[in-house]
Design a protein around this nucleic acid. Structure first.
Lengths: 148, 148
DNA sequence: TATACGATCTATAGTCCCTATAGGTTCAAG
DNA sequence: CTTGAACCTATAGGGACTATAGATCGTATA
């Protein structure tokens, strides 16, 4: 009695959008399943497990490349060492921490700028001042933040 | 004696890559400059100021849309109120703070997972465990982090 | 003056991780 | 049998760039 689900059901069980599942298949993160008579995808337990893994890893911010490594490692020799896994996770943790400290610096600057600026004019606006000339906190040149 | 610079010089003075300057022109963030005889871009003081503004705003994590607003506001009536500017900055600060708290949650989870996992096997790896089944911190389903 | 080399030009595609749209087909309930 | 939800493919978009290719320009040196 093998369980078999449609793409919609798989999506519901993993909290993953249908389009995203198809996208994961397209980029080779999730195996292409068999097709039913009408051409609809028919998934099995293994797909559910793998997609759950992928989703949890994404929730933790791992990139697709990281996830590929983790999946390969997780299906490798069960008795083998897990150093490589730890390494991926540790590198990710470093990246998370770096991002946090970047954002904290940003937060401080924004707070200090906003604090000074109480309903003044455009001419005297502290926020705009901070952008018009090198900021008070000199040497602020992060060059890292792409999206917030 | 109007100052005039090449794109390379402008890049050097603003810490902005040449390709990025051309890109900003393409998306209408920076005005297209005049061209010299050979077709090379010739920039003036106003471009330098505007690009500096843009770069500082990017360093602070403002989006292109935010920057467009800020630029419009900064060139508006000098005696007008700067509430709108403050509003953009305050909204951005909120976004930065939200991102920080997201990342901190991630950090905690990664730390706790990595702490438990001392050179074990793939089979017993805590990191992989956290991905294979719902994590110890139950209800972890951020659905927010895209890039770190 | 010839030449070499760096700086510039345009146009296009790729990155990351999806999301959205259009237009068609299949499935399941009533 | 009909309706409507779910499914299918293919393609384009988004944000903020980055990379590549192939051509032209400008300038310093021999």
């Amino acid at each position: 009695m093998t369980e078999r689900f449609s793409i919609g059901e798989l999506g519901r069980r993993t909290g993953c959008k249908v389009v995203t599942i198809r996208y994961y298949e397209q980029i080779g993160l999730l195996d292409a399943p068999e097709r039913g008579e009408g051409g609809h995808r028919v998934y099995e337990r293994a797909h559910l497990d793998r997609l759950s893994f992928i989703r949890r890893a994404r929730d933790l911010g791992f990139s697709h490349d990281d996830i590929r490594s983790l999946l390969t490692l997780s299906t490798g020799p069960a008795a083998g060492p897990c150093q490589a896994v730890d390494h991926v996770a540790a590198a990710h943790l470093d990246a998370v921490r770096a991002k946090i400290s970047d954002l904290r610096r940003l937060e401080l600057i924004l707070v200090s700028v906003l604090d000074q600026c109480g309903r003044t004019t455009v001419e005297a606006c502290c926020v705009l001042d901070a952008l018009r000339a090198p900021s008070a906190e000199d040497g602020v040149r992060p060059a890292f933040v792409t999206t917030v």
